[in-house]
Structures are given as structure tokens and as C-alpha cells.
Design a protein around this nucleic acid. Sequence first.
DNA 1: CAGTGGTGACTGACCGGTCAGTAATGTAGG
DNA 2: CCTACATTACTGACCGGTCAGTCACCACTG
Lengths: 198, 198
Amino acid sequence: MSAALELFVERGYAATRLEDVAARAGVSKGTVYLYFSGKEALFQAVIREGLLPALEQGERLAAGHGGSAAQLLADLLRGWWELVGAQKVGGLPKLMIAEARNFPQIARFYHDEVIVRGHRLLGQALELGMARGEFRRCELEPTLSILFAPVLMLAVWRHSFVPCGCTDGPPEAYLESCIDFILRALAPESARGGETPT
Amino acid sequence: MSAALELFVERGYAATRLEDVAARAGVSKGTVYLYFSGKEALFQAVIREGLLPALEQGERLAAGHGGSAAQLLADLLRGWWELVGAQKVGGLPKLMIAEARNFPQIARFYHDEVIVRGHRLLGQALELGMARGEFRRCELEPTLSILFAPVLMLAVWRHSFVPCGCTDGPPEAYLESCIDFILRALAPESARGGETPT
DNA sequence: CAGTGGTGACTGACCGGTCAGTAATGTAGG
DNA sequence: CCTACATTACTGACCGGTCAGTCACCACTG
């Protein structure tokens, strides 16, 4: 599955040959069929098993968090980058974006079990901050999509343009810029200054 | 080329059959080869011809703009949505993200001629705002990527998850939320309040 | 020797690309 | 106006390569 993830992310579903997946995994093509009923089942398994552990870890992090809402939000984004974005599973968003229309039921699953759940997680931090007066009042839904888009793009980029020699800066610095940008946009109307994240 | 754009965006490069492109264009497969030397040449043509006109129009808009930097930035983003995001070419970013690694030289072209050029355009608005004191001082590069990511994601989403029944709200409202979010994040450290875009 | 896990040659469908052929539109000549 | 030839635009059957999926066979273990 690790080999399949790499190749699917690298080349896309249709352009990935099962023989190559098998070769990278160090087995023969027939062996793949001992564990997966076919190419699509392998794809589905890669998607389903890839992100759920990280999501659960994120939920644990949120549950046991004691700091400010800004801290929680920043920690969630940093945690997502470390656990997902910077790992091999960080290619899954790109893969899912590319293949969603060809596999509507898998896209549905990804949407319901990954995106919606992730938004719920970030939404907790946002609501906490609004309740506490740390953040200004705003609509949850567009705001969640907007604030997650830059870090999501970071992961997508690293699996599309970056390998083509289109360089970008160090991802950690970019991530910190994102967090800074987001916290500024969420700051209450009045009372500004000095809310730079630690 | 219009038919090819639609199908490439819908299914991805590898999963698109030239016979289907021909059928949608109302011609036969052989005819495609009268105008393009092969599948990859068709792909390249779709990418190259797709976005350059819109980019030029954006540059004209920026050149002849008299309002505030915030106005210019908002107009550029709205213009991008109307001219690109909401049109068929709005699927190109998704397509390019999905296929960049399989076509490095086309990805290079797209990066240099579309992304970098687009950033330069938005960068003008950002620099203008900083010079005028409308925006806080910040690094150009990460900021441009961050502020464009949400609207880019909007276009990508509409060609991946939305057609799978994963609904989202009206794009125009989301776009206005983006603009509001961005302008808040760019506001100077002091002096806040009432900078809602008109 | 039975059972288990693994192999890789093989098959058949599929699709990019080719090309001999057809139809439509000149156009020249009587 | 009719006929014959030339040119252009297009067609779709066909070919060859590729790859998902199959299955007869192998090797190892207890």
C-alpha cells in the first residue's frame, strides 16, 4: 500500500501500472491480487487507510489541549503538516482532487470522513476562539475552507510543481506565515497588536 | 480544443480517449490528427492557449486601475473568478496539478508563464498597498501564495468534489468572504475597523 | 505429502496512432 | 452546362503496444 500510494500520487491512477506497484513493493503482480481484489480496491484501501490515523491523532490533540484558541489552531495546523503534509500521505489530497470525478463513491467517503471531520476539528478551535473573544465573530464554513486552503495548497504543490524543478521556499517558514496570516484575519475588530503566534 | 479541455478536466489525461474528444467535437478520430500531432500535443495546446488571454486581460485591468490597492486586489480576484474560475478554463489548475509530474516541461511552462506572471500581477496590488500604507508591510512571496490559495481552491473544488454531490455554498459569497478575510489579514497593525470591501 | 504463499507467462480488451478511402468543393476544358 | 480532374476535409477500419486480471505451477514448511 505504501508503494501504491507513492505511485498513485506520482503518476495518477490511470497512469500507474500494477506491475510497477508490485515491483516497488518487492513482490510480483500476482501477489497484489492475493490481497486486493483489483486496482480500484487497492486505490480505495490507500485512500481509506491513509488519513484516518492522523485524523484521530488530531482529535486527541484537540481534546487534551489547554492553551488559547490561537495556540490550538496553530498546533493543529503544525500537527497536520508534520503528520500529514510532510509525510507520504501528504500526496493524498492531490490524488483525491485529481481522481474524485472518476471515483465518485470514494470521493464521497473522503469528503464525509476526512474533509468534514477535519473541518469539525478546526471548527472547534474557531468556535472556542470566538466564544472566548480571541477571534472575531464570523461564519464557520467559509472561514474554515479559507484558512485551511493555504496549508492544503502547500501539500498539493509539493507533489505537483515542486518535483518539476519549480522551487519554493522552506515549507516550515511558509507554514508559519500561514498561521500568522490566519490569526491576523481572525483578530477581533478592535484591540490589535502583539498577537503574533509563539 | 474545447472538447479536449472538458474531457481532460473531467477525467484526467490518461483516462481521456481521443475518440471521445473527437466525438464531443463532432468529428472523427482521424481529424484530430490533422490538427495535432498527437495526444500530448493536444494537451499542450489546451494548456498554452487556455489561460494566456485571461492573464493579459488581468494585466490590462491592473494597468488602468485608479482606485485603492484594496479595490484593485478585490477587483483582480473577482475578475479572475469571472474570467477563469467560473469558466471552463477554471478546470485547468486542477488538470495541471494532477498532471504536472507526468509532463514536466508543460508544468514548467505553466509555472513560468501563468503562476509567476499571475503572482507578479497580484504582487503589484500588494506592493501598491504597502507603499500607500493601506496594507501592513510583509514579505511578498509567501503572502501572495497564501492569499491566492483560497480562490484557487474554489476553482479546483468545483471540478473535483462538487460534481460528486459534495455540495458547497454559492461561489460568489465564498469569494467575497475570501476578499474580506484577505483584507483583514493585510490591514496595518494599528488603525482597524471599517475596511470592509465595497 | 498436504497446505500455504507466491510467481510470472499468458490472454483479451482497450486505445493511440495510421492510412486507404470517401465526400465535398473547386476549376479547367469542351 | 456537362464532364473530368485536382484539392481539401474528413472518415473509420485496422494495427501494434500496453496493461488489468488469470491461472497453472513452484518452493518452502511442518
